[in-house]
Design a protein around this nucleic acid. Structure first.
Lengths: 151, 151
DNA sequence: TTATTTGCAAAGTCTTTGCAAGCAG
DNA sequence: CTGCTTGCAAAGACTTTGCAAATAA
């Protein structure tokens, strides 16, 4: 039920593994994801930092999000709203069956767990020889709230 | 086997339906998709126009791609390469089961037909009450060419 | 004729980069 | 110490917009 996500504990190790340094900026940015979760853009993260009276610059936020994705701690998402968004990665590689339902009316993004994609991927591998290492699945439509409230 | 795609014939009708005008620019831009197919960015289309000694401006290309998507003649795609890409839409709504396999090594984009997503969508609708009207599915991995040639 | 459309250049948004100063290891 | 990092401002990539001239219906 509860997915295991990467956290602050994984950061130092993954950084030094690759010769990167642990900095207060990187720690603070990751902490925002650990504490608030969700799908945040660079600008979102930057806003939270400003609320917290942090002096971290926007360029540093971009660089940190990039690095954290490279380390596999965050996952980069694209909901087509003009900016990259990020979420905490699941530590368990078996738990990647988590898709996004994007409501075309209220723009809400709903998480959805579903395993059926395994079969699809096996099929693709068999038919095309393409070795799948990752996928991105988005469904667009109308959430139950918007469907009940008017058109 | 052969998908029916929208073409120049559908353009005039769909334009006037909504009070838009048929212009040589719009016709020429759509013709490029009909003749060359593929996944083209605004800049790609603009290059083809320049090769054809066309005087159409880049802003007009952006505006036409937007309009053609709105009319459902083109579909907007996002392969995460920093620019919007477009392809001809299938005229048949049953034929939307067409996914993209993106090779992480050679960046090639392979089309793949697969119906299995119906089941997944039905499942989602049942469990969450979300009404799906569209989806976008991308698989990242290594194509058979890159798998055989070296690492 | 008249509202839509075009081309150009300017402006906008998100993101990246150069560089000197700062800091982790 | 030494090389990785930061913050700032400038630059970059892609896209949108304002406006006067052109044009489809």
């Amino acid at each position: 039920m509860s997915e295991k996500l990467f956290g602050l504990g994984d950061l130092r190790e993954k950084l030094s593994e690759r010769g990167y340094k642990m900095t207060p900026q990187r720690k603070e940015i990751l902490k925002i994801f650990v504490e608030k979760g969700g799908h945040m853009s660079a600008e979102d993260v930057y806003s939270v930092l400003r609320e917290n009276d942090s002096e971290i610059g926007l360029a540093t936020v971009y660089r940190a999000l990039d690095l954290l994705s490279e380390l596999g701690i965050l996952v980069r998402l694209d909901f087509g709203d003009g900016c990259a968004r990020y979420e905490l990665n699941t530590a368990d590689p078996k738990l990647h069956h988590h898709h996004h339902l994007i409501c075309l009316k209220c723009k809400k993004v709903i998480e959805f767990e579903e395993d059926l994609l395994d079969e699809l991927e096996a099929n693709i591998a068999k038919k095309s020889g393409f070795q799948i290492v990752n996928h991105e699945v988005k469904f667009f439509g109308y959430c139950s709230d918007c469907r009940t409230k008017g058109d």
